[in-house]
Amino acid sequence: MGKNQGIKSIMAVLLGLLAGALLMLIMGFNPVEGYRYLFKGGLMNLERIGNTIATATPLMLTGLSVAFAFKTGLFNIGTPGQMLFGGFCSIAVGLTLDLPRGILLPIIVLSGVLGGAVWGIVPGYLKARFNVHEVVSSIMMNWTAYWIIYYMVPKYFKGEFLETESKMLVESATLRVDWLTNIFKGSYINLGIFLALIAVLIIWFILNKTVLGYELKAVGFNRFGAEYAGMPVNRNIIISMMIAGALSGLAGAIQYTGNANIMQIGVMPSQGFDGIAVALLGASSPIGVIFSSLFFGVLYVGKGFMNAAVKVPPELADTIMATIIYFAATSMVMDRVIKWFKKKKNKGKNDKDKSSERVVEK
């Protein structure tokens, strides 16, 4: 993430927090107390820190999915469906296979990745072959995944007590491990965080150190120029959406077999849509996505504690997040503010230099 992009993200966060403070004042709450309990709720002890990291993990991957697609000139709004289908594949494998944990867990994770990749290939192929806009086809794939799972879970994996949720995974089929839970004092943090960080490093390497990454970014920058240069544009579009889908599928595997151990029907995962916000705040940079997802994780975990402690509505935290994204998206305004500050700084420096010259001349 470039220096200017980092400054813009920090400005967006500060302006969003300022807007939230004004809202608290208008509603009759003390903003200092509100923010103190908001951040305390996500960071006050090891258990809550673990929960914050666990909550941020699927956001990290869906944000990375959207950011990767942005880098290649595509808008992957299909992250919820890719995450949902990937999570369903993982749950289905975990409930069906009876294997040793060392063999079962890699298969569960891989099935989630492949499920998400398949769900990403479809809009990629439609874009490359028929020039169908990926936003339209991705939204359709979201609802296709939603209704497939709405039917499949009660039909084949119905829970013991409710038809609206699947059976519970046994402990050996989940990503939770005792040593990590014990370190964070009973938190639901799991191995997913390590998988997410590995994924970030892989995507960073692909984008910055490989020919494929160069070609994908070239297609995103100028599709017709890349085609004129002899690059396989259509193939790269499909590959880009497949990789983005795989990342969202991994997010689904972690959410449903790590943060939870069941899948509910009738629920589109909000982490998919929130990944767009994470990518925007992280300036579509793999490293930036890590920090923005952790920040959103703090807000997600802390808003309930803020409500319990000082009765500030949790919806206010959602409003703060929306405001931050609004400021992050208005990069043109941020650019002008940064340029104004730089111009003022340079002008002050030039005036100081001129004053020094006059003193020397005298």
Rank of each mutant, 00 (worst) to 15 (best):
G115N: 06
W119R: 07
P80Y: 04
L97C: 10
G120V: 07
G116E: 10
F130H: 14
G115R: 05
N131I: 08
F88V: 12
I121R: 03
T79D: 08
L126K: 02
I107D: 00
F88W: 15
G87M: 13
P106Q: 14
S138L: 06
G87E: 14
L105W: 08
L97Q: 13
G112V: 07
G86E: 13
S137T: 15
P80M: 00
I77T: 03
V118E: 05
Y146F: 15
I103L: 13
L97S: 11
L99K: 00
V109G: 02
S111K: 01
L110D: 04
I103A: 09
F85G: 10
G116R: 11
T96E: 05
S90V: 09
L97F: 14
I107S: 03
I108E: 00
L126G: 05
V135T: 09
M141Y: 02
G78C: 13
S111W: 01
K127L: 04
L114W: 01
P100N: 14
G87P: 15
S137A: 11
N142V: 11
S138P: 10
T96M: 04
T79E: 08
L84F: 10
A145L: 09
G87Q: 10
L95I: 06
N131H: 10
V132K: 01
V136E: 02
G116D: 09
S137M: 07
G78Y: 06
R101F: 02
M141T: 07
G81P: 01
C89D: 08
V135S: 02
I108Q: 03
Y146Q: 05
T79G: 13
W143I: 15
V136Q: 02
F130K: 15
I121E: 02
L104I: 12
G78S: 12
L104A: 13
P100I: 14
I91E: 01
S111C: 11
L104C: 11
R129K: 15
N76H: 13
G112C: 08
P123Q: 03
G87L: 13
I91K: 07
L126S: 05
N131E: 15
V136W: 02
E134F: 03
G94M: 09
L97Y: 10
V136N: 00
I103H: 00
F130R: 15
G86W: 13
S138G: 15
P100M: 13
V118F: 15
K127C: 05
F130L: 14
E134S: 05
R129I: 03
G124A: 06
I107Q: 00
S111R: 04
F85E: 04
T96C: 07
M140Q: 08
K127S: 05
I91W: 01
L104P: 07
L84W: 09
G87R: 09
R101M: 14
I108T: 09
F130S: 12
G116F: 08
P106D: 12
P80H: 01
K127N: 04
F85N: 06
N131M: 09
S90T: 12
Y146C: 04
V93P: 13
R129A: 14
P80A: 01
I103W: 00
G120S: 07
I103F: 01
I103G: 00
G116C: 12
I91A: 00
A128G: 02
I77E: 05
I107G: 00
W119T: 11
I91N: 02
D98K: 15
G112N: 09
S138A: 15
Y125D: 02
T96R: 00
M83I: 07
W143P: 02
P123W: 03
F130M: 12
W143K: 08
L97H: 11
D98G: 13
G81V: 12
M141P: 03
G115D: 12
